[in-house]
Amino acid sequence: MKKNAPAEPLPTVLFVCVHNAGRSQMAAGYLQHLAGDRVTVLSAGSEPKDQINPVAIDAMAEEGIDIAHNVPKILTVQSVVDSDVVITMGCGDACPIFPGKRYEDWELEDPAGQGIDSVRVIRDDIKRRVEALVAEIAPAR
């Protein structure tokens, strides 16, 4: 009998923005929704807010993705160490860099203080980027 090969470790993706209340939360929500158990998803902020941006929550709810119960988290060196892919969204020099990691910087407008129409545009841009990421790192089985 042939034994099953050990399972490949899941890729871990960390989304980072300043407040961990909008862009990174929307990206994490999309990645979890689109890739499910094929990835481990983390998000954090260099200066996290107390709660998720309510307009971002509403925009994601329109897509059937619930981020309302997420809590902004502080960016730690360990979360970067634990990640295979680190995607920054305007966190500047606050994001630690480690050799051997894949880094991408997604230039996205900050949804803070913006209305739903503007946040939908940001959300849709994030969705396109996450879909491309999923196709690359966690294709359907």
Rank of each mutant, 00 (worst) to 15 (best):
Q25H: 06
A68F: 05
G29L: 03
G100D: 10
I122D: 13
P96S: 14
N53K: 11
V85S: 02
D117C: 03
K49A: 15
A44Q: 07
P72D: 04
D82K: 14
F98N: 12
A94Y: 11
H33Q: 14
E62V: 02
C91N: 10
D93T: 13
E131I: 10
I97W: 14
G36L: 04
A112I: 08
T88V: 02
L31R: 00
G92R: 11
N53D: 15
G64W: 01
A44H: 13
D37E: 13
Q51C: 06
I67S: 12
E131K: 12
G113Q: 06
I67V: 15
G90Y: 04
D84S: 04
A28E: 03
V119R: 02
I122H: 09
M89D: 01
K127N: 09
K127C: 04
A27N: 01
N53F: 08
E62G: 07
V77S: 11
Q32S: 14
Q25Y: 06
D66H: 09
M89K: 00
C91T: 09
I65V: 06
G100L: 11
T88C: 02
G90L: 05
D105I: 03
W106C: 07
A59R: 09
F98A: 13
A56T: 11
A132G: 09
R38D: 02
D117S: 09
K127Q: 14
D105H: 13
A35M: 12
D105E: 13
V134E: 09
I65F: 00
C95N: 12
K73G: 02
Q114P: 03
R38G: 05
H69D: 14
K73A: 10
Y30P: 00
S43K: 00
V121R: 12
C95R: 12
L34Y: 10
A27G: 04
S24P: 09
P99W: 08
G90M: 08
K101L: 10
V121G: 05
Y30F: 15
I126A: 03
R38Y: 06
I126D: 00
V119Q: 01
E131L: 14
A112P: 01
V121N: 08
G64M: 02
Q25N: 06
G100C: 11
A35V: 10
I126H: 01
R120V: 00
Q25W: 07
I52D: 09
D82P: 06
V119T: 05
E63M: 01
Q51E: 14
V41W: 03
S24K: 08
S118G: 06
I67T: 13
P72C: 03
